[in-house]
Amino acid sequence: MNNVYRLRKALGRTGAYAAALAVFLFAIFPVYWVLATALRPTGEIFTREPTLFPREITFEHFERVTSGVLIPGTSFWSFLTNSLIVTVGSVVFAALLSLLAAIAVARFRFKLRSVFIILLLVIQMVPVEALIISLFINFFHLGNTLDVELVNNLSGVFIVYVAVALPITILMVRNFVNAVPKQLEEAAAIDGASGWTIFWRIMMPLVAPGLAAASIFAFITAWNEFLVAFTFLQNNTDAYTLPISLQYYFGAVSIEWGSIMAASTLLTIPVMIFFLFVQRRMVSGLTMGAVKG
């Protein structure tokens, strides 16, 4: 009896490890394959008998991507700069605006407060994929009216990224502002601290982690965004961001898989790094309250 039990347990454990290994391989294989393709010489890529591991490591694809010979007239560095401008810019903006709005929502009771919150929750649900046509038309007209170019140019994409990030960042930062004990502020006020002092010395240090998490969230979303950038920037290669440049390489006559995988690696690295920081919050943020404790 005891032996049967032990055997079952051992089998169960082996099974669990085997299953875990299978899931692990399923999860990492495509990521591995990106790297493996990016790092092996072209001869090893275009073969009918590819090997699992590169026989030779080369950085030629990375060089081809960064030197811009892949598609003449384009430059990886300009794509990277565009991506950085539009992402960092929109993140900073969204962080600022959401900090202000979060303080309003967390610290004041005003008439339109719940309307505002419900608006944020609902807007967050409206799919950009559905909105894309009117978004384009709106910016086209807005640009015409204001006599600035919003389509075919990074500024439009930038504004869209700010707006798309706002609902989630406001709600996230709001939770952090809520968590700052009011007594702390009151005590400081009694000690004669001004509004600004209270803000910088008491509120900010406690809200900063939330602001950082929300910003990283917004960063990842904007950095990866494809549809809006593709729709707005299609005709202006100079304004391409990294994700659409990948698509552009991809559309070339003969697909250079090595270079595409190299470019893909370069796109992925910053996301992976940031992801490490917010992974846990990502889960709790999206399923807030469903998990108690």
Partner: peptide, 30 residues
Amino acid sequence: LGIGLMLAWATPVISAAIVYRWLFDTRYGF
């Protein structure tokens, strides 16, 4: 296992799509 999962999760959508296109490529796909 969690780290493995995170790698898949954190991959930009466009990169994921392209690598699957490559994995299933007609002639040279894995």
